[in-house]
Design a protein around this nucleic acid. Structure first.
Length: 602
RNA sequence: GCCGGCAUAGCUCAGUUGGCUAGAGCAGCUGAUUUGUAAUCAGCAGGCCCGGGGUUCAAAUCCUCGUGCCGGCACCA
């Protein structure tokens, strides 16, 4: 196999550039290594551009980089391109690839480039972003494009690719700019890898919580109810209740007090907190007797009012309030997405009021709490510290101090983290918890946010040792983030096959004939006593049909009862996953369920 | 909010260039059957074809304005 590029000074250099500059280095072969795919996908993006240009001659191109999941190219054309056009573009790409054009490279000066692309405002926009004196042009057949490279030596090497998505994208990622057309694609070195990737996408689609949620009757949405307002169905209600009660206990164990703030508060309070000015466009407002109220988008203000209800001594701190807080946020319609993005959701929210000396230990405790929960659900996760965003309240100094506190808490415990510059909330820096699900996708859930601002704005205080008034520090934190999103993620993570302790229904009972219904009912009652939900499948259907129906509900355990079982007070268990069957006595069975339900404690 | 697409029974989908009373499978209901581990048989019922307006002799089908959904962008738990 010939090299497609080389690695020189730890940089990928294409053969065109290597020849021109006389560079040497380790060869990069056409395989599925990171470097190889980088080059391959970048060239595939160019091949796509070439195909688009030939099909839509007026097309002008912006940038076409590789991304984590393949590549894309942003471009503009007067023609309306839809999903159905991807096939014809792919076809055109293949026919160009067959021509095995060399990919040639040449360099021109900045001025020459500006002249060359003077009628192409998109390329000029690209050129403006390049600080260099010289720019390179890559050419394949008739098509040429301004590009930094690196590229394959020949487009004939591109064989296994697929265009996956088409959408709009703002020029330069700024919503103030015009919108371009973006086409996403993926490419691999071999057919099998492409297929594996497409299979993975199909698997993700199968697990989609919107689909599984509907099948399992966890939740639904209705047009007449409104976009972004989920409706929890009985099965989803049971699942959610289990999660809530487990988490309730876990909070109590860690010294959190349950509290509850009102759903709406007077706008004056939101002005004091800064939400009115900084978050107002995401809030819902209404008037009651000429007084304006804002529906809470966050729970902090309510908890502050709880704190203010009495005087606090330094001896009381830290004080931890928690609430399953229902919040409403006006999200853009286009942002709504199943349970992942809704307009009403419930946070597992808590606020810790503490002294600045306690910040570190409190952060560490919360991080430990997070770890307990995420590892229980078998999630890998990573932490990300977010710093000051453009739109923020509070001085730089306050921001710096708080970021330092977060970092030092992480450092002292040797916890790895990444930095997201400018990603903080408007009122303070934060640690976000990103979890990776069973098929490798990342989701942002929990968040730990330091806030030196609200205590200041609400003039919170506690009595110090010398009876002096000291301002407490406030830590906002949510671990699941929201029940909606977390349950959505859990659904995809487990593909709906929830473990016993969280499943909407623990056991499906299938009596063989009507004469076994009484025993079935008896078992169901005993299961309720040990906090397990069950469902009896005694409809007028064949036994096989009822087993099939029960299996399809993804319930973790199926028990079949007939004459033998009634007689000996036993159950015939069928494990849905392994399709194994075994028998247990009634007592053993109940004990097993009880163990499986109680084995989890956060 | 922006770009593109989509909307027919509870669900998954047919419905030809505008043309008879809009169809099927699953689910539901009724009856027969009472079953030992993944679909028993028969019958019945179920539709403002997303909503408003328009074009036409005639609209599920064409146009238009909404609403909702899907894929991204931007924004975010």
């Amino acid at each position: 196999m010939n090299a497609i590029a080389i690695k020189h000074n730890n940089e990928i250099i294409d053969l065109q550039t290597a020849k021109e500059k006389g560079f040497e280095g380790e060869p990069i072969l056409l395989d599925n290594s990171k470097e190889s795919l980088e080059v391959l996908r970048h060239s595939t993006a160019h091949l796509m551009a070439q195909a688009i240009k030939s099909l839509y001659p007026d097309a002008k191109f912006f940038v076409g980089p590789t991304v984590k999941e393949g590549f894309y190219y942003d471009f503009k054309t007067e023609a309306e391109i839809g999903e159905s056009d991807l096939k014809s573009i792919e076809k055109q790409m293949l026919s160009f690839a067959k021509k095995k054009y060399e990919i040639e490279k040449y360099e021109i000066s900045m001025d020459e480039a500006k002249e060359k692309f003077k009628d192409d405002h998109l390329k000029l926009a690209v050129i403006e972003r390049i600080p260099d004196d010289m720019v390179s042009i890559y050419k394949q057949g008739e098509f040429e494009d301004l590009c930094r490279g690196p590229h394959l030596p020949n487009i004939g090497l591109i064989r296994f690719f697929k265009l996956t998505k088409i959408s709009g994208a703002y020029l330069g990622g700024d919503s103030k700019n015009e919108m371009l057309t973006r086409i996403y694609g993926i490419a691999f070195a071999d057919k099998e890898s492409l297929k594996a990737h497409m299979d993975m996408l199909a698997e993700a689609e199968k697990r989609d919580h919107r689909k599984v949620g509907a099948e399992m009757k966890l939740f639904t949405f209705r047009e007449e109810v409104g976009a972004g307002f989920p409706i929890w169905l009985p099965a989803g209600g049971r699942l959610r209740a289990r999660l809530e009660s487990l988490l309730f206990k876990a909070h109590r164990k860690r010294g959190y007090e349950p509290v509850r703030g009102p759903e709406m508060l007077r706008s004056d309070l939101w002005k004091t907190s800064g939400h009115y000015q900084n978050y107002g466009e995401n809030m819902y407002f209404t008037k009651i007797d000429e007084i304006e109220f804002g529906v809470k988008p966050m729970n902090c203000v309510g908890h502050i009012k709880v704190y203010e209800d009495e005087l606090h001594s330094y001896r009381d701190l830290p004080i931890k309030y928690f609430e399953y807080g229902v919040v409403h946020r006006h999200e853009f319609t286009g942002a709504l997405h199943g349970l992942f993005r809704v307009r009403e959701f419930t946070q597992d929210d808590a606020h810790i009021f503490c002294t600045s000396d306690q910040i570190e230990e409190q952060i560490i405790e919360v991080v430990d709490f997070v770890d307990k929960i995420m590892s229980t659900f078998e999630f890998d996760y990573k932490m990300m510290i977010s710093t000051k965003p453009e739109k923020a309240v509070g001085s730089d100094e306050v921001w710096e101090t708080s970021i330092k506190a977060l970092k030092s808490a992480m450092d002292k415990n040797e916890l790895p983290y990444e930095i997201d510059e400018g990603g903080g909330a408007f009122y303070g820096p934060k640690i976000d918890i990103k979890i990776t699900d069973a098929i490798g996708r990342e989701w942002q859930c929990g968040t730990i946010q330091l806030d030196f601002n609200l205590p200041e704005r609400f003039e919170l205080e506690y009595n110090g040792e010398n009876n002096d008034k000291i301002q407490p520090v406030m830590i906002h934190r949510a671990i699941l983030g929201s029940f909606e999103r977390f349950i959505g993620i859990l659904t995809e993570h487990y593909a709906g096959e929830f473990p016993m302790f969280i499943a909407p229904t623990q056991v499906a009972i299938v009596p063989i004939a009507d004469t076994h219904n009484a025993y079935a009912k008896e078992l169901a009652d005993k299961l309720i006593d040990i906090n397990a939900d069950s469902e009896i499948y005694n409809k007028n259907d064949s036994l096989n049909k009822r087993i099939r129906t029960a299996e399809k509900t993804r319930v973790p355990m199926l028990v079949i009862i007939g004459d033998e079982e009634v007689e000996g007070r036993t159950v015939a268990i069928r494990d849905r996953r392994t399709r194994e069957q075994y028998n247990l006595s009634e007592d053993e069975f109940l004990k097993l369920i009880q163990t499986k339900i109680n084995e989890v404690n956060f």
